[in-house]
């Protein structure tokens, strides 16, 4: 840590400070939005509240997170919205279909092993998969890099494989959008 200062690939001081400032900025933003109007009193009040909250309940460090890359991040967002619309209609159709008497709909609990070792990527993947109707993460084990998802209507091997492919694509998008974890946090990525 205290070795050659300034000639490392990432100067630790400024990035550490910046990383600690990010949640403060978010909290102040939420505070100002809650008040609804932008004024310096609001910003100052939000700053005080944010600092108190972060001192009393410190956040765990997010290891090896780099900055967002706008292009891939926008693409991930676009695909997320498209997924949201498509699978909403799909689940709507399945709900109506289930009204008919007969064989009830069948599902699967699928284990998917992620390629990336980054917990942040895993958390984002879990978040997105849970928000989209039709897939629901019921267990996530970062130490095994595995998440277990309940997939509605996955009643054959093809559907399970399709879900695995969907998760793999989502993960690749996220890795690209978030950048690789740096060497300080986790072991290096095996994604080319």
């Amino acid at each position: 840590m205290s070795g050659g200062r300034g000639n490392g690939p990432t100067p630790p001081d400024t990035t550490g400070l910046l990383r600690r400032a990010v949640p403060v900025v978010w909290l102040v933003l939420v505070w100002v939005l809650l008040w609804g109007t932008f004024s310096w009193a609001n910003v100052l009040g939000g700053l005080v509240v944010a600092l108190v909250v972060l001192v009393v309940f410190p956040l765990p460090p997010a290891p090896g997170r780099s900055w967002l890359r706008p292009g891939p991040a926008l693409r991930t967002l676009r695909r997320f919205v498209a997924d949201l619309v498509v699978s909403s209609l799909q689940v709507a159709w399945q709900s109506l279909e289930a009204l008919r008497p007969g064989r009830p709909i069948r599902s699967s609990v699928v284990a998917v092993r992620l390629e990336s070792s980054s917990e942040f990527v895993m958390a984002m993947a879990v978040e997105i998969l849970s928000l989209v109707p039709g897939s629901l993460v019921i267990e996530a084990r970062p130490e095994e890099r595995t998440l277990y998802a309940h997939v509605l209507g996955a009643d054959d091997a093809e559907a399970v494989a399709a879900f695995r492919a969907q998760v793999a694509r989502l993960e690749a998008d996220l890795v690209e959008a978030l950048g690789r974890p740096q060497a300080a946090g986790a072991p290096s990525e095996e994604i080319p």
């Binding site: 689940v91 709900s95 709909i105 509605l152």
Partner: peptide, 24 residues
């Protein structure tokens, strides 16, 4: 989604229907 909450067979399946009013 409310119809699905009545028609789908178990809790986990119904939760998929529940995601729609909650999110979308």
């Amino acid at each position: 989604a409310s119809i699905g909450l009545l028609s789908l067979p178990d809790v986990l399946s119904r939760m998929h229907a529940a995601t729609k009013p909650q999110v979308v």
